[in-house]
Write a protein that binds this DNA or RNA. Structure first.
Lengths: 411, 411
DNA sequence: TTATTTTTTTCGAGGCTCGAAAAAAAAGAG
DNA sequence: CTCTTTTTTTTCGAGCCTCGAAAAAAATAA
């Protein structure tokens, strides 16, 4: 049950608010903070001087963009890059990358390598991740105890505690408790997140006007991923990362899906499904584990050239996505949709049938609210979202009792 | 953007917490409140004596159930019935009822009448509601300015501001702004809520062990309604009351639904759909506006008697519900399901196919978490949920600045 | 050099919660 | 019947926190 609000929570919350505002705004002055947070000048002054003394914030000299006016000039406050260091690891099909960020969100060091995930054993995967972390920490000139938080983004389903990769399309291995393994080895806190959720986090940070309280991100690739933000919060399931849009049922008992079930949206709209259909193979054929982007581009060009199996396949894919969005919108009301990933390259071939299908559903009522934004390259978004997630976790730890002691002990 | 926490918010929140705890627990002592809220004895003492002085709480003598122990006996605190009066109106197919509750949640007066909603014009409906409110207020010996809050529960879709009935199956009329109309006439605040959402509110109050953070309520009747609680909060859409489970797409382009679209879950699982199928009519036949419960009981008995069209119809209905739940659970993870309404009388004929269908979907993975509770009579739940909603709104208004002044002015 | 303007800090007042101690209210013991 | 013990509730002073007003600081304009 909900606990009463203690007196010291008050300061902690207001500190959190100030830091969050600075992370959003970039380099606001104290006066900006007053208007953003609704707190008084006195309070902002007290909190910010505390945070500066603790090494979390620093006054920054704004060079050019300042309007020269009468009166005492505003002093902008920025996050102190040295206040903390965080680490992100992104594990996707055949790709592994690790990045070190400073507290201000700037990249300190980055590594990326190809990794044949499909054939990799559990130990291969864990070992590769560990080696890459060690290497990138070396590049950045940091040791594990400098890292205050790590976020790992993976393709697939994670548990709701963000500790274990429950299932993934990138390897037959499942239930890998990355957080436990890495925390044991490196001794910094780790969370494991779904890649699409990280995309959603990044989009909200990039364009808060458009992506704020309710929106959907779809990742169109060999599978179909979804990130869902409802009421301004990332939606996750009760047990898992949830949001398995690709495995909502499009046609009961229909086409064979990569997950082994039948009729999932993915079994019509995933790259493998589009290829299978365009190639005239039965929709009960086993799925390809990976489809070359080049192949999909050629398929899209075939479809653009005129009617034929390729165009039909994309139409069918669009229909599956459209009915799925329609059902989703029946539940949550229409919302802006961001389409991310390689699938955007053929989105023009799918959009008409998506819109037709949505119009057939209850979700199609307010279709003015439905718009599609495209972003082909998902990798920068995943990285940005992961970093943001790790940094925001640090932001909030800074106010926990004992933070100051910890900082002094480690710095 | 989120505002800073002011100093006076603190007291307001803690007062809210105390009142909420008392509404949940019934008649806790101050010591109980200390452990429930985590606040100190001093704070609880201060807040409760304030609330007693303001006439919101009262010390109650617990008669029997008290364990006789050494030491100063605990004094239980209860809600003061005279602190406020709320009103609920429930408008369903062919039924209208209005109830007056005191602040402790006891019924003061109640009226109920049959009303031929299907043939009623907008003015008929509004007029009937107004007359019934006036009558029940008379029964209760209250005047409109005694009422601090009214909740109206309606079958159908409401807007997310809870002010307008956007669409309803009980009459062809749509977009009736009940809240505006009634507030103008009676001058007390009104909200308009979806009936299934009120059922969810009531279930959570009745059995907080089982229905707490995540659960689903399905109302099986001529149509299919849903109430959804996620993360402990009633889920509503961005524009509407949302949760249109019955209009998720089961079979694209399939059976004709009452809403005019094709393939909705309701077009297979609503009473009219089951009857249509069992009677051997085409699934493109127009829906009956209402189906006699007696007819459904006979149909269920036909089905229980052995294989045949009736059994097939229920099986098909179960399949639609099952795939729908499967898709829902793919998004939100499995959760307990409460099945409410006349449809429960034939639930035994549907449950096997529901479970079979769910097992075919991604949502069926953790099917241990899926359980069905049945409750045939929805009316008491709707009433209880509506009252609770109104009372909780009053609970929270009591802490708004100016509350004390208002109370003194009106009492 | 002085006045004006704007930002930031300082200072005292008022509220709130907390822990400890005191008061209250009952049962049990002698 | 009185005193002790036990438990609940209230009181009291300390410590924070936020706020508004006033003061200080830091720049431009005259």
């Amino acid at each position: 049950m909900t606990l009463g609000v203690r007196h010291d929570d008050l300061r902690r919350r207001n500190r959190a608010m100030v830091i969050a505002a600075i992370r959003r705004e970039g380099q606001p002055s104290r006066t900006d903070l007053v208007s953003r947070t609704g707190l008084s000048h006195s309070t902002i002054s007290a909190i910010s001087s505390d945070l500066i003394a603790e090494g979390v914030l620093r006054p920054v000299k704004t060079g050019e963009n300042e309007i020269v006016r009468r009166g005492r000039p505003q002093v902008s406050l920025g996050l102190e890059p040295k206040a903390a260091t965080v680490l992100t690891v992104v594990l996707l099909l055949n790709t592994l990358s690790a990045t070190v960020f400073d507290y201000a969100g700037q990249i300190v060091a980055q590594r990326r390598e190809r990794l044949a995930t499909l054939g990799a054993t559990r130990d291969d995967l864990v070992g590769s991740v560990m080696r890459m972390i060690a290497a990138v920490l070396g590049d950045a000139g940091r040791v594990p105890k400098d890292i205050m938080r790590m976020t790992m983004a993976v393709q697939g389903i994670t548990d709701s505690d963000a500790r274990t990769m429950l299932w993934t399309p990138i390897t037959p291995e499942s239930d890998i408790p990355f957080a436990d393994i890495l925390e044991k080895h490196f001794a910094f806190p780790v969370t494991v997140q779904n890649d699409c959720n990280m995309i959603a986090v990044a989009l909200r940070a990039r364009d808060p006007e458009r992506y704020r309280d309710n929106f959907v991100t779809l990742l169109l690739s060999n599978g179909i991923g979804m990130g869902l933000v409802l009421r301004g919060e990332l939606f996750t399931g009760a047990y898992s990362s949830g949001g398995e849009f690709g495995h909502m049922v499009h046609r009961p008992g229909g086409a064979l899906c990569r997950c082994g079930r039948r009729g999932c949206i993915e079994a019509y709209a995933g790259n493998y499904a589009i290829l299978r259909e365009a190639a005239g193979r039965s929709d009960q054929t086993a799925a390809d584990a990976d489809v070359d982007p080049q192949t999909m581009l050629e398929l899209a060009n075939d479809a653009r050239a005129g009617e034929g199996p390729a165009r039909d396949a994309f139409r069918r894919a669009g229909e599956a996505i459209g009915y799925g969005l329609g059902s989703l919108f029946a539940l949550i009301d229409p919302a802006p949709v961001a389409i991310v990933g390689p699938g955007t390259l053929a989105f023009d071939m799918m959009e008409p049938s998506i819109r037709d299908a949505i119009a057939q559903t209850a979700g199609g009522q307010h279709d003015a609210a439905i718009s599609f934004d495209l972003e082909t390259d998902e990798m920068p978004l995943i990285l940005e979202g992961s970093a943001r997630r790790a940094l925001e976790a640090v932001d909030n730890e800074l106010f926990a009792p004992g933070y100051i002691a910890t900082m002094q002990a480690t710095s």
